[in-house]
Design a protein around this nucleic acid. Structure first.
Lengths: 204, 204
DNA sequence: AGGTAAATGGACCGTACGGTCCAACATGCG
DNA sequence: CGCATGTTGGACCGTACGGTCCATTTACCT
């Protein structure tokens, strides 16, 4: 039995509630530490509702992966529009670091964290996360391309590579932040990525 | 009942066999996908042997984390000694990328992968992994410091930050490699890190 | 050789978990 | 209004799993 898409408004709310509850629990305890009964309880739903809207546990986790990527990306949309200026890039980086301070360096990147837990086990989830990273990288790349279009980047600068490296700095920096419980790790990593972008600007 | 250290050679072999089996299974199926019965079967051991040498499942996973970090670091010791030359750095980076090709971009970094699965669940495991990252970063930093001692780095260059950023490039690059199933992601990330080091050299 | 401690085999236990099933209830549509 | 379909409650099931226990065998030491 594949998962069913809700038809009524009530159904949509239920499905939504389940995903949200599952995402919260996964963030708190990890994929392995989250049982369907935990989800059921927090979502105030019944077992049949879970299996009405999701084929099985993996299907639910795939939906969680999608919701989490949407959340992570959604939380940055305002900052994404400013990624075509040095100040905008700085503001974006500062916000990421501030968030890690607020979270006391716990949890790392929700996307990266899920990657380690799902990528090798469920290919669908892997693709979902890959899509999230693509959107993230695209946002950075497009900012840099706008800078380039205004002639602020040297002709030999490669916005694609710069964006990819910035994203690896984010992910690597968050991993070190998480393991070392030190938000400064992300700060240092992002400083390096921004320095590379600064170095690619045209001489004034 | 805490874990017992083996006294006889036979005991040490058994403990070793259990850890190796567990590490293999964790690499193949992840922490959550590895049951103690799986470990028992592959290690050709009995249940009582598991609980003779390890307090519980978490204790075993902590030992796995240690073994895995030792493996990852051990596989690079030869390359670590050459990290004080540009060619040595290149060779090291090439080896990491080649390994990802061999693994068909699966699994990511064993340390980073375990981080996502263990860090938030078991603090002891987190510290074990943090220690592994520290040793890794130290190896890079010491290479750079040898370069600096020979006067090949500009006085304002910061070997600590350069090493940390290189490690984040490795980890971030491996994460993207894993999720996108594309070893080139690591290559691009490492190229960026090495470029930063090249830029910190003294002018010839 | 004999005694002590380590090491081992494996039966056993409780339960938490993913998943199934069906009857009851809501809801939209003609 | 009434039927069809979507939605919900929750009892139920099988088992896989982490963990316990004890009797037996093996190894080390004097």
């Amino acid at each position: 039995m594949p998962s069913t898409q809700p038809v009524t408004a009530r159904g949509r709310e239920t499905r939504e509630r389940i995903i949200r509850a599952a995402a919260e629990l996964v963030a708190e305890r990890g994929v392995a530490g989250t049982s369907l009964d935990d989800v059921r309880a927090r979502a105030q739903a019944s077992k049949s509702q879970l299996y009405h809207y999701f084929a099985d546990r993996d299907d639910l986790m795939r939906a969680v992966a999608r919701a989490v990527t949407d959340d992570v990306l959604g939380g940055q949309t305002a900052l994404f529009t400013q990624l075509d200026t040095v100040e905008g890039l700085r503001a974006w980086a500062d916000a990421l670091v501030a968030l890690q301070h607020a979270r006391r360096a716990k949890g790392g990147c929700p996307i990266g964290s899920l990657a380690g837990q799902l990528a090798e086990h469920d290919n669908g989830a892997r693709l979902e996360l890959a899509d999230g990273l693509d959107r993230w990288e695209s946002a950075i790349r497009e900012g840099l391309e706008r800078m380039a279009a205004r002639g602020e980047l040297r002709p030999d600068a490669d916005p694609r590579a710069l964006a990819q490296r910035t994203l690896t700095a984010v992910q690597g920096g968050l991993l070190l932040t998480q393991i070392r419980r030190d938000p400064n790790q992300l700060r240092i990593a992002l400083d390096g990525a921004l320095a590379a972008i600064l170095a690619a600007r045209t001489e004034p």
